[in-house]
Amino acid sequence: MSLLTGKNMSTIYRACSSGMDKCNQMLIWSKFQKAGYVTATGEDYLRLPDTFGKYGYKSAPTDHYLRPLFLTGEHSYGNLVCTKKMASPNHILDYATAFSETYKDEKFFGMFWFNSYSHNLENKPQLIDDGIVNYFIRLNSSGVMNNTLIFFLSDHGMRYGKMREQVESYYAERLPMLFIWVPEDFRKKYLQEYINLEINQNRLITPYDLHLTLWDVMIRSKMSTDKIASEACPNCDSIFNEISPYRNCADANVDEKWCTCHKMKSVNRTEIDVKHSIELVVKYLQNKTKNIQTTSCMKCVVLNLKTILRTHTYRDESLNSTYFVLALVMTPGNIGYEATIVKRNGELSIMQPTYTITSYNTRGSCVIEPNHRSYCVCEKIAKCKIKH
């Protein structure tokens, strides 16, 4: 939504709370559509509780819309999410290919997203490798890539599973991938802009910058003359312009929680601040567990510390703050969590939110609010009778 709107999430939730149709004009595909582009979008794995699924569209948000196909019935078969006899992401690749080839001589904007090969497990993206390769081969052979900018990206790195136990995963989660295909004609016509793209490969950029970059595409194609700024990030810019090497997370509106512009070092868990940080996290998780609403005759078991996986620290002089990044396992359920504690003005406080780093907790199905599942191991209350 940051990429599509350039706005703060508070603005997005307020505008979209009564349905996505009410806020569709905020999304950049509507801007492209108004500028004369043919538009399309599609996303698989519809049962995920994302923004679109939560608020929903009553009518198609773009000229072409893939959701009705998946509404005919997505089914899980082992590691695959399928629609009829084909994996859902393959439907998306076929649709994106047909859309691009159909409108290759016109101006078009498509955003296609697949979740089911990579959302939960780390070993499934390889299943779509050949499909993606064949997709680009076909776009190239059909001439689509001669005049089309392609952004190939993710929303984040690995968030759950065994890989998250290692300290490197702290950075991997916070650094989504981004690859851009730039047509040869664009490179010649806008040489400096292409040089800037190469420079910016090693600079801090965000989805807010990409939002402005997409708008910049409209301006350069003479389909819009309006310069805009990102509401959420006034200092952000199109990445066709050189981004400062001195840019920090505050400049780019990256929250402290997600900033990776620091180098962490291991710290002994017996140090007094680390011990107090661990105690703070355990108490936080226990208090959270006690206040979770559950279905009748069920409760969440109070969690206790089982294992400390890693303890690291870094310093931010600009904020006069020291940070402690901890990963630990709580029992019962062997649920792993990663937490960041900040020491500022001599006081330790936990940075919200604290996330689970283990695979989705299947033992938390008694919770009322889905977001609480990762903090709960359900247990039946003794001698409790469910009222009908």
Rank of each mutant, 00 (worst) to 15 (best):
E379Q: 03
L175N: 04
V81K: 09
T51G: 13
P49Y: 06
M111P: 00
W181M: 12
L214N: 06
L178C: 06
S374D: 00
L66P: 09
T72C: 09
S230H: 02
P207D: 00
L27V: 01
L204F: 14
K188F: 07
D316F: 02
I350M: 09
V217G: 00
T97D: 12
T72Q: 04
G6S: 10
W258Q: 11
N320Q: 05
V329G: 05
N268Q: 07
S118A: 03
G333L: 10
G333I: 06
A252L: 12
H262N: 13
R315P: 15
S76P: 00
S349C: 12
T62H: 08
D255R: 10
L326M: 10
D226Y: 01
A382M: 12
C261Q: 11
P370K: 03
M223W: 03
P49N: 07
G73Y: 05
E106F: 09
L212T: 11
V267S: 02
I180H: 05
L4I: 15
F52E: 07
L127I: 00
L3D: 10
D130G: 02
T362P: 12
K387M: 08
S321V: 06
T62W: 08
N253T: 07
T270R: 07
D209R: 09
G161M: 15
E43K: 00
Y13G: 02
Y360G: 06
G143T: 04
Q33L: 12
W215I: 08
E317H: 13
K22R: 14
Y355K: 03
P183G: 10
V182Q: 13
Y355Q: 00
V325E: 03
V342H: 05
A172V: 05
L280M: 02
E279T: 00
K107L: 05
L326I: 01
E379C: 01
S142N: 06
G42V: 05
V367S: 12
K104P: 11
E165T: 12
L71W: 05
K54L: 02
D316K: 08
N79W: 08
L280C: 05
E74M: 05
L71I: 10
N120P: 01
D316C: 12
N304Q: 07
C378E: 00
Y117Q: 04
H64Q: 09
A60K: 12
N79Y: 07
M351L: 12
D209I: 03
S349Q: 14
L121W: 08
M264C: 06
L71F: 07
P125G: 02
N146P: 00
K104I: 05
K124G: 02
E165H: 11
D226H: 11
K85C: 13
R247P: 03
Y246V: 06
N8A: 11
K162W: 11
S169H: 09
Q192I: 06
C384Y: 03
P245K: 13
A252R: 10
L48A: 00
C259I: 02
R310A: 04
S17D: 00
L303A: 01
L153Y: 04
T206K: 10
E184K: 15
Q33T: 02
C249K: 14
N371Y: 13
T331S: 08
T322G: 11
Y337M: 14
R67D: 04
C23T: 15
Y45P: 01
K288S: 05
L80S: 06
R159M: 09
M351G: 01
K22D: 12
Y103H: 08
T322M: 11
H276G: 01
A229Q: 13
G364A: 09
R203G: 15
